[in-house]
Each structure stands twice: as structure tokens, then as C-alpha cells.
Design a protein around this nucleic acid. Structure first.
Length: 590
DNA sequence: GTAGGGTTAG
């Protein structure tokens, strides 16, 4: 192959500043007078390895060309690695394809680059090219390729055959990666087959297989495999704890946690996270405090989990303290902690603080935007939520289904029918987001509240799945507001099938009949309630934080007998409600 | 170079 003229490279490079960057490079100055190859090469290599911007990548390539290092496999390997970190594989390809004899290191770097930058098919393409070039793959080749075949499904089996053919059938790391691959695609039997056929296994192999069972929540198999391990490591303990937590078996998770000989930060975080997932937020926070008491230093992952637990409980004081802890201990304010904090302040009623945190985040991803938009919507700032959504679009963050639940909710609260309709259409037209039941719920609520009862009913009819109680409930509520008894009865009958024991719907219909003085119908619904034994309204509970203790309470709650002052105070409030100047809304009280 | 823990809605 002929040597390529430098100008040919220049044409491949789009930047107009490219030539200038070569001319102005201090490199040429540096090189003047250098005689040995070693010294001459050093700066080029440094230039490649210390690339901190894509622009420098181009300078590095220019230097390589200038120093005729483009045929050197080591230089090319380093250059491709640098290209990978800036997602500039075009540069990598255009320079490596000019090589006369790229070796296995060059191919490996490129294959890994394509996998890292999410172009799995292209990594396979260069793997094929490598084989055609008679370059023998190494174990590194396959550790990248197995990941690629995960995204480009269907290549797993043929890749496994190649792994054997090229002599890596007994390579511990490669086989372990294969177990991980089969496990991630849910094919546990295949994973186990690889495991069973391995003549040698290491720690990681065992943990990967245990984790494969955990993935599908088969904790019996996970446990029995963990029991067969020569020596159970922390990762396996953690994996088991996490699995039992996901299964909702807190007792087993706790027992394992207490039994394990050595706990690390992941063990503690797994417990905090496990309690949180099981809605035991108070315990999640307790474990966190216990952890700090034992002088275990939490990390960013622990902190985001704890902050999220505080958000769910609405405990502002603890939340603030945890926030302070992250600041004082120099934790990176990443998107996880960021969105958890935004959500925590917003759920604790401190929208201003949520906004402050949000605008001070060094980086914002979809979760951060969703949290702040939801916060604004939940606090009734509909127009601001819409503005924030527009800002998100301008910053080119792609919204998802969650975003639209909040945005449409905002429209409902503010009665913005046309805006809601427009956004609802854009979900499909601009973002190709499939409507889920919540989106329909938002639209039905929007139409119903605005009195467009028939349109709401039409939308329900057009749904491709069965409407749930939330949808019919929203319609029923709209019927109450706009006094449409006819459609209210339709919604009520549907709700009687879906949630026959929810007393709220009965009371709602009764109050509508009562308003029309249809006493016969009132009596009939009452009779139905009696037949089914439905009497009380099931109260939802709320919680309040007093001196870092969380107290639950509900309507007509008599469980706080220890503190009689609470009930004395309630009595006083009732008394004041009877005083002149206070007007009770009794329209819908039957 | 293969293993174990994270954020938003419902």
C-alpha cells in the first residue's frame, strides 16, 4: 500500500481550525533539535494520552501524521482509546483503516470503542474484518464483544462458538462474562450451563451466577448456590440481601445482614435501599443513622437513597440534615443526589429550596427535570411547570412518559384544556411516547373537570386497554362538578365492578341523588352499601415529623392515646369551626 | 478486563 499523503488526512477532518492548530502547536518548537526517535516520540504520545478536548484529538492525530507514527500499532491503540472517550470513532476508523498491518491491540481498541459508544453492530463488523485480516483475537477481544452481543441480540450463540474455537472455552474471565451476558438477557439455564461446564471458577464467577438467580428473583437457587461456594464473599452476601429485599422478604434480608461476617458500604446501602423499596422509609433512615454511628462512611449512592426515603416520608428536618451531611463531607452533587434533593424539598413543601437546588446543579438529567416539573405541578404552579417543560426542551433533554404525567397534571389543575390537548398530541407526534393509563387518566380528568364529559367518555372508549378505577373515578368526579347524573351512573356502575368496596364512590353518587331530591335512589344505594357491609370511609394516613420522630395519623384516629393534648386541641379546633366567620363547605356532605 | 448498592411518576 502506498503511503498516504498528509493532505489526504486533512480532508478527513472537518474542523477549519485544524491546520492552524498544527501550525501553532508548541510541539514543532519542542521537536526542533531533537535527534533520537525516543525523545521525538514522547510528546506525541503525551499529546494523545492527555487529550482533554475533542479539538486536541485532532491535534494529536496531526502530530502522529507529522511524525509518521500512523503505522505504529501502539500509537494507534492509544489514539483510538482517546477517540473513544470523545465519541469520535470516525477519526479512529479513518486513521486505522489506513494502516498496513493493524495488530490485535488496534482491533481490540476499536472494538471496545464501538461497544463503549453503543455501536454494537460496528464492533462485530470490525471483529469480522480482524478475522479476515488473519489477526487472532485475544481474550480482551471477547470481553468487549460479549457486551456487544447483548445489545445486538442473536449473536450470543455464534460468539460463544467463536470463543471456544479460538481457545477461550476455559478462560475464567471470558466465561464469567458469558454468564453475565446470558443472565442479563434472562436466559438463566444457558448461564448455568456455562457455569457448570467451567473447569475452574473464581470469586467473581460464583457471584455472577448467584446474581443471575437474583435477577429472576429465584432466591432458592441463589441461596443454594451461595451455600456451595468454597468461601462466600461480601459481594455474594450483598447480592442475597438485595434479592430477598426485592422479594419483600425483609426477615430473611435482615437475618443475612446480621449474620454476615464483614459488612461493607454496599451491604449497608443495600439495606437502606431495601427498606425504601418496601416502603419502610423510617427503617431506611434508621439504618442510615446506625451506619454513621458505626463510623461507616456513606457515599453518593447511599446518600441518594436516604434522601429519597426522606422525600417519601416528607421529613424536612432529617432531609435538611442529610443534605448538610452531603455538603460537609464533600460529596459530588450528581444527578442522583440532585433529583432526590429536588424531590425531597418539593415533597416537604419547600418548593423554593427545590428550585434553588435545581438551578445550582452542575449537571441535570431527565430525572432532575422530572422532579422539578412534578414539584411545580404538585404545588399548583401549572404555568411555571409548563415553562419549565419548555426550558427542558430548549436544553435538549428528551422528556419521557413520566414527564408528561406531570405536565398534563399541571394542565388539569389549571384547566388548560387546549394546552393539554396540544401536549397530548405532541407526545406521539414529536416524542413517539406511547400513552399509558396515567396519561389517559390525566386527559379524562382534564376534560371532565372542564365539563367536556362526552369528550372524556369518548376518550375512554378509544383506549386500547381496559380503563381502571382512576379513569372512571376522574369521570365520576367531573360528573359531580358538572351535575351530569346520567354519565355519573355509567361511571359508578363501572366502578362497582372494579372497586365495589370503595365507599367514596357510593357517597358521591348518594350526594348527587340527594341534590336532585331523588330519595328513592338514595335509599337504594344505601341499601346496597348495607348489603355489602360498606360503612366507613377507609382513611388514608398522613405523617408528621416531630423531633426526628415520624408519627402516623388518620381521620378519626384514636390511636394517639398517649398524648391527650392532641385530642384536646382537636376539640378546640372543632369549637372554633362553630364560631361566626367560619363557613363550612357542606355541599357534598351527605 | 469479569461480581454486589442509587434519583423522578404510579
Amino acid at each position: 500500500m502506498d503511503k498516504v499523503a498528509p493532505s489526504a488526512y486533512f480532508q478527513n477532518i472537518s474542523s477549519p481550525c485544524f491546520l492552524q492548530s498544527i501550525l501553532s502547536m508548541s510541539l514543532s518548537h519542542h521537536l526542533r533539535g531533537c535527534s533520537t526517535l525516543m525523545i521525538q516520540n514522547l510528546p506525541v504520545l503525551q499529546l494523545i494520552q492527555q487529550c482533554s478536548t475533542p479539538k486536541l484529538l485532532e491535534s494529536a492525530l496531526a502530530a502522529m501524521i507529522k511524525m509518521s507514527q500512523c503505522q505504529d500499532c501502539y500509537f494507534m491503540n492509544q489514539f483510538i482509546t482517546a477517540c473513544t472517550s470523545f465519541n469520535r470513532l470516525d477519526l479512529a476508523v479513518s486513521s486505522m483503516t489506513q494502516m498496513h498491518q493493524p495488530n490485535v491491540f488496534v482491533y481490540n481498541a476499536l472494538i471496545k470503542g464501538f461497544v463503549t459508544c453503543s455501536y454494537p453492530i460496528r464492533s462485530l463488523e470490525f471483529y469480522v474484518r480482524m478475522l479476515r485480516d488473519s489477526v487472532s483475537p485475544s481474550s480482551y477481544t471477547y470481553s468487549s464483544l460479549v457486551k456487544a452481543s447483548l445489545s445486538a441480540s442473536g449473536f450470543g450463540e455464534s460468539l460463544q462458538a467463536h470463543i471456544c474455537k479460538f481457545g477461550f472455552g476455559f478462560h475464567v474471565q471470558i466465561q464469567t462474562t458469558l454468564i453475565g451476558f446470558y443472565s442479563a438477557s434472562g436466559r438463566i439455564k444457558e448461564a448455568r450451563k456455562v457455569f457448570d461446564e467451567m473447569p475452574q471458577r473464581d470469586d467473581v464467577t460464583w457471584t455472577t451466577m448467584v446474581s443471575a438467580y437474583r435477577q429472576v428473583l429465584d432466591m432458592n437457587s441463589a441461596t443454594s448456590l451461595a451455600n456451595q461456594m468454597p468461601e462466600r464473599n461480601v459481594a455474594t452476601w450483598n447480592c442475597l440481601i438485595d434479592g430477598y429485599m426485592r422479594l419483600g422478604n425483609l426477615e430473611e434480608a435482615e437475618s443475612l445482614f446480621n449474620q454476615m461476617p464483614v459488612k461493607d458500604i454496599i451491604s449497608w446501602t443495600t439495606m437502606v435501599n431495601g427498606y425504601s423499596h418496601n416502603k419502610r422509609y423510617g427503617e431506611a433512615i434508621s439504618v442510615f443513622y446506625k451506619m454513621t454511628e458505626q463510623r461507616i462512611i456513606p457515599d453518593e449512592i447511599t446518600m441518594s437513597t436516604v434522601i429519597s426515603a426522606c422525600a417519601h416520608l416528607g421529613v424536612l428536618e432529617i432531609g435538611k440534615e442529610v443534605h448538610m451531611y452531603t455538603v460537609q463531607n464533600g460529596f459530588v452533587l450528581d444527578v442522583y443526589i440532585g433529583s432526590a434533593l429536588v424531590d425531597m424539598y418539593s415533597k416537604c413543601g419547600k418548593l423554593e429550596r427545590a428550585l434553588l437546588v435545581f438551578f445550582n446543579l452542575p449537571k441535570r438529567n431527565l430525572f432532575c427535570w422530572n422532579a422539578i416539573i412534578e414539584g411545580l405541578a404538585a404545588h399548583g404552579y401549572a404555568l411555571e411547570a409548563l415553562k419549565m417543560f419548555a426550558k427542558m426542551e430548549r436544553e435538549l433533554v428528551k422528556p419521557n412518559a413520566v414527564t408528561f404525567v406531570s405536565v398534563l397534571t399541571a394542565c388539569t389543575h389549571a384547566g388548560l384544556v387546549e394546552e393539554g390537548r396540544r401536549i397530548y398530541r405532541r407526545m406521539i407526534d414529536d416524542f413517539s411516547i406511547v400513552y399509558n393509563v396515567e396519561h389517559y387518566g390525566c386527559m379524562v380528568a382534564l376534560f371532565s373537570k372542564a365539563g367536556l364529559i362526552h369528550e372524556a367518555l369518548e376518550l375512554i372508549g378509544s383506549m386500547e386497554f381496559e380503563p381502571n378505577a382512576v379513569i372512571w373515578g376522574a369521570l365520576l368526579d367531573g360528573c359531580r362538578i358538572h351535575k351530569n347524573l346520567e354519565i355519573a351512573e355509567i361511571a359508578f356502575n363501572k366502578l362497582m365492578v372494579l372497586e365495589p368496596r370503595n365507599s367514596g364512590y357510593y357517597f358521591l353518587l348518594i350526594s348527587m341523588y340527594a341534590e336532585e331530591k331523588r330519595w328513592g335512589d338514595v335509599a337504594e344505594v344505601r341499601g346496597r352499601m348495607r348489603e355489602l357491609g360498606i360503612e366507613k370511609i377507609c382513611p388514608g394516613t398522613s405523617s408528621i415529623e416531630i423531633e426526628k420522630q415520624v408519627h402516623l395519623f388518620a381521620a378519626a384516629d384514636k390511636s394517639h392515646s398517649a398524648s391527650d393534648e392532641v385530642y384536646l386541641l382537636i376539640d378546640e379546633i372543632y369549637e372554633q369551626m362553630g364560631l361566626p366567620g367560619y363557613v363550612q363547605e357542606t355541599e357534598n356532605v351527605y
